[in-house]
Simulated scan of single mutants.
Amino acid sequence: MKIDKDKVFKTLNPNKVWIPILFGVGIVGYLFYQDDTVTVENLSLIFTAEIVPVMLAFLVLFARDVGYVYRIRTITGEKLTWKSSIYVIILWEFASAVTPSVVGGTAVAVFILMKEGIKLGKALAYTMITAIFDNLYFVVMAPIIFFIANGSIFPQNAMIETQLGRSLPTLFFVSYGLIAIYTLVMAFAVLVNPRWFKWILLRLTSIKWLRKWRPYAYEQGNEIMIASRELRGRDYSYWFKITFSTMFIWTARYAMLNCVIEAFTNQDFAQHLTIFARQVIIWITMLISPTPGSSGTAEFIFNQFFREDLGSVTFVSNIFWRLMTYYPYLFLGALILPRWIARVFKKKK
């Protein structure tokens, strides 16, 4: 795998923070304009939030970030220091925030790990296994939350046509199918039989109208084999820690919204289960968003899922949710990026 440093730094560009901000503000403005239930008075509801749930939201968010740092250090076999792990996570989150989810940021993540002293083959393996486990959480949790939510996952207005031209349930099932197929194939390729996967890729790209993709298929096959070789021989405790930390990270991420909504409303246990379940659907749908960090798309889908249940507090909950889970990583990444660049390149001298 060739890492184009210029391309990576084009992605890790602090000036790019304004692009997703414009998307997000644009959609929020659109929702404010077209929704008659959203008024200036609604915005003042943000000052009515109960302090305990808000504090819990920040605590859960902090716990999630600690989980991320712990997991990347565990995945690398503790080759990264705690400080390096923090840098990696912040910059990885920043890269995800300024690039479309559907594009992904594998090259950026590999580059960051390499600059923290991880060799190319290992960096590639660690990035792939992180993506596989994150996607597996969605693949496994989606059927479970369908059962938990007992048919109340999609709001009644979800059948309206969205800006993407599809109903929300259709968008979810298409997203889920694509993610499930991709994740299961990649998990098999990396963890079971990489040689067979490479052979299939080369056979497929031997078809006349697919031949132009053959060089990419050859490179992808080699990357999978390298990653598989680096992960071979890991003991059960290694996989258990990664599995547990992944479950903790994403569960904490979703629980944060439960805390935010509880700050403005009084929800019972069943309603909290529905809120949690709907977030799995929202995040799976966001994974195919064409906008940087799903900016704009996230705000719009949130409004479609929760406005019937939350009423007047939907707008402030939406803003609070994105202010806590998205925008901090834009600005934090932009702030520490120059310091990280000076640190890793000075280390090489």
Results as ranks from 00 to 15, higher is better:
residue 208 K to A: 10
residue 127 T to H: 01
residue 268 D to P: 02
residue 314 T to E: 02
residue 330 L to Y: 06
residue 160 I to W: 00
residue 160 I to A: 13
residue 80 L to S: 02
residue 69 V to C: 01
residue 281 I to S: 11
residue 50 E to M: 07
residue 225 M to D: 06
residue 287 L to Y: 06
residue 116 E to Y: 05
residue 327 Y to L: 11
residue 84 S to V: 00
residue 262 E to D: 12
residue 159 M to G: 09
residue 130 T to N: 10
residue 62 F to Y: 09
residue 127 T to V: 09
residue 253 R to Q: 13
residue 135 N to P: 06
residue 346 K to T: 14
residue 53 P to K: 05
residue 153 I to T: 06
residue 165 G to R: 07
residue 144 I to P: 03
residue 71 R to I: 01
residue 133 F to L: 10
residue 156 Q to I: 15
residue 146 F to R: 12
residue 289 S to E: 05
residue 333 G to A: 04
residue 101 S to R: 07
residue 314 T to Q: 01
residue 192 V to E: 04
residue 24 G to Q: 10
residue 328 P to N: 07
residue 29 G to V: 01
residue 92 W to G: 03
residue 70 Y to D: 02
residue 300 F to H: 08
residue 172 F to Q: 11
residue 22 L to S: 13
residue 121 G to T: 10
residue 92 W to M: 10
residue 293 G to N: 03
residue 3 I to N: 01
residue 163 Q to P: 11
residue 346 K to A: 14
residue 189 A to C: 02
residue 76 T to R: 04
residue 70 Y to S: 08
residue 158 A to N: 04
residue 245 S to H: 11
residue 234 R to M: 11
residue 182 Y to F: 15
residue 209 W to G: 00
residue 149 A to T: 08
residue 89 I to F: 00
residue 124 L to R: 07
residue 285 T to M: 15
residue 329 Y to K: 00
residue 5 K to R: 11
residue 305 F to Y: 11
residue 245 S to F: 10
residue 157 N to G: 14
residue 149 A to K: 00
residue 253 R to V: 04
residue 129 I to P: 05
residue 236 Y to K: 15
residue 107 A to Y: 14
residue 128 M to Q: 14
residue 302 F to R: 00
residue 123 A to K: 09
residue 304 Q to Y: 14
residue 235 D to K: 07
residue 151 G to V: 03
residue 323 L to A: 15
residue 124 L to N: 13
residue 231 L to S: 07
residue 22 L to I: 12
residue 54 V to W: 09
residue 11 T to E: 03
residue 117 G to H: 05
residue 3 I to L: 04
residue 278 R to V: 04
residue 340 W to C: 07
residue 60 V to R: 07
residue 302 F to W: 06
residue 206 S to K: 14
residue 195 R to E: 15
residue 159 M to W: 12
residue 253 R to N: 11
residue 236 Y to Q: 12
residue 36 D to C: 00
residue 115 K to M: 12
residue 154 F to H: 06
residue 131 A to I: 09
residue 184 L to C: 08
residue 251 T to F: 13
residue 188 F to R: 02
residue 101 S to N: 12
residue 277 A to P: 00
residue 119 K to W: 08
residue 290 P to C: 08
residue 190 V to D: 03
residue 158 A to D: 03
residue 106 T to P: 12
residue 201 L to Y: 02
residue 238 Y to P: 02
residue 71 R to Q: 14
residue 244 F to P: 09
residue 261 I to F: 15
residue 26 G to H: 06
residue 44 S to R: 10
residue 256 M to D: 02
residue 342 A to T: 15
residue 85 S to M: 03
residue 311 G to D: 09
residue 304 Q to C: 12
residue 265 T to I: 09
residue 48 T to L: 00
residue 159 M to F: 13
residue 336 I to Q: 04
residue 129 I to V: 15
residue 315 F to M: 13
residue 189 A to E: 01
residue 115 K to A: 06
residue 130 T to F: 04
residue 240 F to E: 06
residue 315 F to S: 08
residue 79 K to D: 07
residue 107 A to T: 12
residue 111 F to H: 08
residue 312 S to P: 11
residue 349 K to F: 12
residue 310 L to I: 08
residue 149 A to S: 10
residue 341 I to M: 13
residue 265 T to Q: 09
residue 27 I to N: 04
